[in-house]
Simulated assay, not measured.
Amino acid sequence: MNKSILSLKLKEYREQRGITQEELAELLDVSDKSISKWELGNGYPSKKNMMKISALLDVSLEVLMIEEQNEDSRLKRSFKYTLISYFIIFALTLLIRGVKEGNRYEDILSKELSEIIKIVIIEFGQNIYISIVPALIIGLVFYFYIIPRQQID
């Protein structure tokens, strides 16, 4: 299991208070292996223990819980910006190519529906990949730079 925000913060708050794993385990009436497991991200404390940890380490329960959700929220927001960027860039690409090559399909409405669909699918397929790289760059900028700065402010 990967280290979670909670596991990293639990250790940080415990060390800030100068409490060892053994001392915290004794205060919570659990084994020191449980504390170690929580700090390694291999498990989570029960709700009852979360409330005790909150009181013992003088950290609000909301902070312990919200920090766990922040990373997930950051990833979702970044993905949303990546997707929006992709569609905007894709639409602009089609628009620019349409203006540039406007006379290419002047008589498209006189063709059969199946032929029109075939042309649209081919055009779509030829232009779909152009937008991926810039959209991914925009998403990464949001994930690593913009969203963390918003959280600080």
Score class of each variant (00 low, 15 high):
E62L: 05
I147A: 00
E67N: 14
V63F: 03
E71P: 00
E62P: 00
L10R: 07
I119S: 02
G139F: 05
R14V: 03
E23V: 14
K111T: 13
D72L: 13
Y44F: 15
S7A: 09
I35S: 06
S78Y: 01
V133W: 13
I88A: 10
K37C: 05
V63Q: 12
A135L: 09
E101M: 02
V30P: 03
E71Q: 13
F79P: 00
I132R: 04
Y44Q: 13
R77T: 05
L94P: 00
I146D: 01
L113A: 11
K52F: 09
Y143V: 00
T93L: 07
I66P: 00
M50W: 08
R149C: 03
K37G: 00
L140F: 14
I108E: 01
L28V: 09
E112Y: 11
Y81L: 11
E123Y: 06
K80F: 12
I130M: 07
L8T: 14
E23F: 07
L56R: 03
E67V: 00
N127M: 05
I88F: 14
S4M: 07
D29V: 03
S110C: 06
N42D: 10
Y44L: 11
E71V: 13
F142I: 00
K3C: 01
R14S: 04
I35L: 12
N70I: 11
I116P: 02
A91M: 13
G102V: 01
N49R: 04
K111H: 15
K100N: 08
L10E: 04
V141Y: 12
S110N: 15
L136P: 00
Y81M: 13
F79L: 12
K3F: 06
Q69M: 04
P134G: 07
L40A: 10
G125K: 13
R104T: 06
S46C: 04
E23G: 09
K33D: 14
D107V: 01
W38Q: 03
E101G: 00
F79N: 02
E71M: 05
E106W: 12
R74Y: 01
P45W: 10
Y143K: 05
G98H: 10
M51S: 11
E68K: 11
L40Y: 04
I130T: 15
I122P: 00
R14P: 04
G43M: 07
S54G: 05
D107Y: 11
I66C: 01
R104A: 07
S85P: 05
G139E: 06
E67T: 02
K80S: 08
L64C: 04
K9R: 12
A55P: 00
A25W: 06
F144T: 05
E39I: 01
D107A: 11
I117D: 07
V141F: 15
Q150L: 15
A91P: 03
T82L: 11
Q16H: 11
D32M: 10
L27Q: 15
N127P: 02
K80Y: 08
E101W: 10
S34I: 03
V59D: 08
Q150A: 03
K3M: 13
I147F: 11
I88N: 08
A25E: 13
V141C: 13
E67M: 06
N70Q: 14
M1P: 12
I119A: 03
L136I: 15
I121W: 07
F124P: 02
I138Y: 05
L24W: 09
D72R: 07
K52Y: 12
E123T: 04
F124C: 04
M50P: 01
R74E: 07
L75D: 01
N103V: 04
D32S: 13
G139I: 04
